[in-house]
């Protein structure tokens, strides 16, 4: 077993970029997520948030720069291998295994990272209990409400025992208080298990009180990174972000 000092403590992107047909979707972005903290990745639509998450998770490979786990270069590693390294993502709108039960959805993630059957089931039971999904564990995932589908997706990601969790708008479609509550529970989880969380979110008000730091993107480039209060007051952020929203 790796001791805490041996296991990686920082997931980062160094000067990473990717372009599609000459269009630079992400251009020279550097960011760092430490274990136990919640980093909010925000920006208007099309600013490169999901592309950044795709680069970190291995769904896309950077055309320039690198993705690092501590000092190790992950850039060439497939998404599945990164999951085994503890870098786990979710998708917008959940994308659960619809015709499997909620329990099986979560069990699969345990099996996926190599747990034995019994251990995967124990992991599923624990995770479902922590997220309040025990009462729907036996139902097929596609019969749940949108909110519970998203929670199932988060339970699935947690059952893969991540060191770093990349969440793509986990609270989309929920009202602000529900969203804040969900992210607060994720934050509690992250602290308790020392998970570094990257949270993609387009609603500034949701991330303001829940994230330790914010990283703001616009047109694929970093605008500013810092504590929420400082970011909120940044004139450039106010202009490009709040300006465009109205």
């Amino acid at each position: 077993m790796a001791t805490l000092s041996e296991s990686p403590s920082v997931l980062s992107m160094r000067d990473a970029g990717v372009h599609f047909d000459g269009v630079k979707a992400v251009d020279g972005v550097s960011l760092t997520v430490s274990r136990g903290e919640v980093l909010g990745l925000i920006g208007p639509n099309g600013s490169g948030k999901t592309t950044t998450l795709n680069l970190l998770s291995g769904m896309l490979r950077p055309t320039s720069g690198a993705v690092l786990l501590d000092d190790r270069d992950l850039s060439r590693l497939s998404m599945r291998r990164r999951v085994r390294e503890g870098v786990v993502r979710t998708y917008q709108s959940g994308r659960v295994f619809g015709r499997l039960t909620v329990f099986e959805n979560v069990e699969v993630a345990g099996l996926g990272v190599g747990l034995r059957r019994g251990a995967a089931r124990d992991m599923a039971r624990t995770t479902l209990a922590q997220l309040g999904l025990e009462d729907v564990a036996h139902l097929t995932a596609d019969s749940l409400t949108a909110g519970r589908i998203r929670t199932t997706a988060i339970a699935r990601a947690l059952a893969a025992q991540p060191r770093f969790l990349l969440l793509d708008e986990p609270a989309a479609g929920q009202n602000e208080s529900e969203a804040v509550q969900l992210i607060e529970s994720i934050r509690g989880f992250a602290r308790e298990h020392s998970i570094g969380v990257l949270l993609v979110e387009h609603d500034m008000s949701v991330v303001m009180g829940t994230c330790d730091r914010l990283h703001v993107l616009d047109s694929g480039r970093t605008v500013i990174e810092g504590e929420p209060q400082r970011v909120r007051k940044d004139p450039q952020v106010i202009e490009i972000y709040f300006g465009k929203r109205e």
Binding site: R89, Y91, G98, V113, R156
Partner: peptide, 10 residues
């Protein structure tokens, strides 16, 4: 059920 979600689950 979902290819990319399964890959993301390892």
């Amino acid at each position: 059920e979902d290819y990319w979600s399964s890959v993301a689950s390892g």
